[in-house]
Design a protein around this nucleic acid. Structure first.
Length: 404
RNA sequence: GGUGGGGUGGCCGAGUGGCUAAUGGCAGCAGACUGUAAAUCUGCCGGGCUUCGCCCUACGAAGGUUCGAAUCCUUCCCCCACCA
């Protein structure tokens, strides 16, 4: 069985640098459920599903790893249910690697529904109004029960325009919480046996044991010195198998994001994957890769897809526009996705106007593929030591279209 | 032929004397969306202009009452229901 073979490997978690050019890197991330070739985009599956898409479609689009969300899965169906059902992989029938976000982003996105304190955060559930508490410890317990390959530290995300004072507070709290996350995660990791018979038939409660790693998150808002202190404090608590950069693309101007990435690039461990959380749009991936980022995730592919907005090599396409009514062309003639393989813009527009879910699905699928392909193209360019030229050309064309 | 009900902006449908160019909804047009409270949200949506304002034309048609009418009166046209 796969599981047993993986156990025999020297390590379940690893990262190998396959090539680099400037800051840009190509690598192989080893996780219990398989390898991830980087740079890579990770589709977001908040509720244990990449919204609207069949896991087979997500696989065929080239996704190597997807996300789940602690807060949302805790509210519904609850980690007990998922654990009883054999863990998130088995529950969702996704057998490739998975990563769960800690709920830290919800501290930011559900700002109107939560109260933050040193111990943790109190949320008023948007589902039934009940009060739910998330702490560094409970986030670890939930993620442990979910059993993704990678668990994320519970962090305090502040808005991009946050004052230095607020950004400092969030950053320092994130460091204190990281200490608690690590202690709790270590305890969980050391505490159990594998709990998994490995034959795939066990219906015992799922206990992921050592098959999960914890990644810390660097915060500090738009302030380079805070970012630097955050990274320093984070690495002191290591070693870690990966490092995440959070609190970007939350309202700050793009040049600020680029500057923060540049300021961190030199100090981030070279032999560990770097994950830029919540990013991004196509241009953000290219800009991020150029600044040393290996992993990305973003809801925009599926959300914008559901809203009828597609990324294409000719610029953004709003499929609902009247100009698409009798357009025979695919969304993007250069795209190799299943949507572009057989559907016209005119038909896709019709599906949106008619309100059929197929339209949402097809454009979501296209957008997911579009971002995954950027990772693949960038990787190939880096390995061919052609990334600098490729990325400049790509960005030049991209911005030309934006202005057209 | 009789009786009753009704005709409102592309469609449906509120409004029964001034705050009405006329609530809503749909359709239409455009925009937003970055670790998902989003198949969502926002703006425009009679015509024209120098468009945080002004001017025209408007609630089946014509005429009337009134300072003022989609709203009241008269006649006509059309639709629906029931009765002959």
């Amino acid at each position: 069985m796969t599981v047993d073979r993986e156990r025999e490997k020297p390590g379940l978690f690893g990262f190998r640098l396959d090539g680099s050019e400037g800051e840009a890197r190509a690598g192989t991330l080893r996780l219990p459920h398989g390898d991830v070739l980087t740079p890579a985009f990770m589709p977001v599956g908040t509720y244990g599903t990449v919204r609207g898409l069949h896991p087979e479609e997500v696989e065929r689009a080239g996704a190597q790893i997807i996300l789940g969300n602690t807060y949302h899965l805790h509210l519904r169906p609850g980690e007990q249910v998922i654990s009883t059902m054999g863990g998130l992989h088995r529950f969702t029938s996704w057998q490739r690697p998975m990563l769960t976000d800690s709920g830290g982003f919800q501290v930011f996105s559900l700002a109107g529904l939560r109260k933050i304190g040193e111990d943790g955060v109190e949320f008023t559930s948007h589902i039934d109004g009940s009060v739910r508490t998330l702490t560094p410890e409970s986030s670890m317990e939930i993620q442990w029960a979910l059993g993704a390959d990678v668990a994320m530290a519970f962090d305090h995300v502040v808005p991009g325009q946050a004052s230095r004072e607020l950004a400092k507070e969030g950053m320092e709290r994130t460091l204190r919480w990281l200490d608690r996350c690590k202690a709790k995660h270590d305890a969980l990791t050391d505490g159990g046996d594998s709990g998994d018979s490995g034959d795939g038939r066990s219906i015992r409660p799922h206990r992921p044991a050592v098959r999960q790693t914890l990644w810390p998150i660097v915060q500090g808002g738009s302030h380079d010195d805070l970012r630097s202190r955050s990274l320093e404090g984070t690495l002191e608590q290591g070693p870690w198998t990966g490092t995440a950069i959070g609190g970007l693309s939350v309202g700050e101007p793009k040049p600020v994001m680029h500057r923060v990435l540049e300021s961190l690039a030199g100090a981030l461990p070279r032999d560990r994957p770097r994950y830029l959380m919540g990013v991004g749009f196509p241009e953000d991936l290219v800009e991020g890769i150029a600044r040393g980022v290996d992993l990305f995730d973003c809801v925009a592919a599926t959300r914008n897809g559901r809203h009828g907005s597609a990324w294409t090599s000719a610029g953004r396409v709003n499929i609902r526009k009247a100009s698409n009514r009798t357009d025979e062309r695919p969304l993007d003639a250069q795209c190799d996705c299943a949507t572009c393989a057989r559907f016209s813009r005119g038909y896709l527009r019709h599906l949106f106007v008619a309100g059929d879910i197929l339209g949402l699905r097809l454009i979501s699928l296209h957008n997911v593929r579009y971002l995954l392909r950027i990772g693949e193209l960038a990787r190939a360019a880096i390995l061919a030591r052609n990334f600098d030229r490729w990325s400049h050309e790509w960005l030049r064309c991209y911005h030309a279209k934006e202005e057209a």
